[in-house]
């Protein structure tokens, strides 16, 4: 039963990705400018441009190019970067790992932190510490990520303390995790952006659950308070919060662009910005597809959590 639902969702997800691939490909077709001219520069002769177009397969009809590209995606071939001339997958390999590290660190810290703080606030609702925390989370939630990032840089790297690097120091080619201190500020920025939403959602659902009849019943059964919270209340609050966490994690995949740019971090975001600058269509397409895949995957994960925490869905599904 359960497997069937997940299977259905997976098929549905595949269709979504297919639709996204059409959109991404269509959008890059509409981009102004000529890839061959962008590569060869303004002085290129028409003959050389024609030759390059032929070489890149740009003279084929659009649908044929789309099918080519799509076929490549299935075997992990993202095409050839028109800027560097090498395969896109090779170019993105290191970048992907660097970005993944950043996102994973941010997620591992912010999800438990957000849930924990939300539960804490719900348990002390109405008291001063709850109000203070609500205020702080509201301020953080309303600040754009680059403001937070610049604020952190000013605080820890330049104006106040000079204890952390303001930008990524690793030379190209060196893995970012060789110098852990350069990961701190980007990770902290992402955590500060993502956590407030999770806290606020967790607090709201937790308050609702704490007011429910079965929590009162558990207390009247003599269940110790810790078990009331962990066994009876929290599992019910996780379902709705999983959706928010998913949206936040998906945002990380895209939002990482600005943060990476800010810290000159050699991740996917940097790669995307460079690719757009150099009209490197293949790379833009590949990164867009990766981000879309992350969105689909985390939302699927959220649905699974929702089903697991609700036996009604589990058995009815």
């Amino acid at each position: 039963m359960f497997g069937k639902v997940i299977g259905k969702r997976l098929i549905f997800s595949a269709f979504i990705l297919l639709a996204v691939s059409l959109l991404v490909f269509g959008a890059t077709l509409l981009l102004p400018g000529d890839a061959a001219r962008a590569i060869l520069g303004q002085q290129a002769t028409p003959e050389r441009i024609a030759a390059l177009n032929e070489q890149l397969g740009l003279n084929d009809p659009a649908w044929l190019r789309y099918l080519h590209w799509l076929g490549g995606l299935f075997v992990g071939d993202f095409g050839t970067s028109s800027a560097s001339g090498g395969p896109v997958s090779e170019l993105l390999g290191d970048r992907l790992a660097a970005s993944f590290i950043l996102m994973a660190l941010a997620a591992i810290i912010s999800v438990p932190l957000g849930i924990g703080l939300g539960v804490y606030q719900a348990l002390h609702r109405g008291k001063r510490r709850d109000q203070t925390m609500t205020g702080i989370s509201l301020v953080l939630a309303s600040m754009p990520e680059f403001v937070i990032g610049i604020g952190l840089v000013a605080l820890f790297a330049t104006s106040v303390f000079q204890i952390l690097p303001a930008v990524t120091l690793a030379p190209p080619g060196e893995p970012v995790w060789n110098r852990p201190e350069q990961l701190i500020l980007p990770t902290l920025t992402l955590v500060l952006v993502v956590t407030p939403y999770i806290v606020r959602m967790m607090r709201a659902t937790m308050i609702e659950v704490l007011d429910s009849g079965f929590v009162e019943m558990a207390r009247l059964k003599g269940v110790p308070e810790k078990r009331v919270i962990m066994r009876h209340a929290v599992p019910h609050a996780l379902g709705p919060v999983a959706q928010v966490v998913a949206i936040q994690l998906a945002w990380l995949a895209g939002g990482v662009v600005v943060v990476e740019f800010l810290f000159r971090y050699p991740g996917l975001g940097q790669a995307l910005i460079d690719a757009v600058t150099y009209r490197d269509v293949q790379v833009v397409q590949a990164i867009s597809m990766l981000v879309a895949a992350v969105y689909v995957a985390v939302n699927l994960a959220a649905d699974v959590v929702g089903i697991l925490t609700n036996p009604k869905l589990r058995s009815a599904a």
């Binding site: 429910s212 009849g213 079965f214 009162e216 019943m217 558990a218 207390r219 009247l220 059964k221 003599g222 269940v223 110790p224 009876h232 599992p235 019910h236 925490t309 609700n310 036996p311 009604k312």
Partner: peptide, 22 residues
């Protein structure tokens, strides 16, 4: 806590709301 549920027990109004659905 020792008293509740053991010496003095409670039967609530709405069973649909008072049983933990999970």
């Amino acid at each position: 806590r020792d008293l509740r549920g053991s010496r003095i027990a409670y039967i609530p109004q709405d069973p649909a709301l008072s049983l933990n659905p999970a």
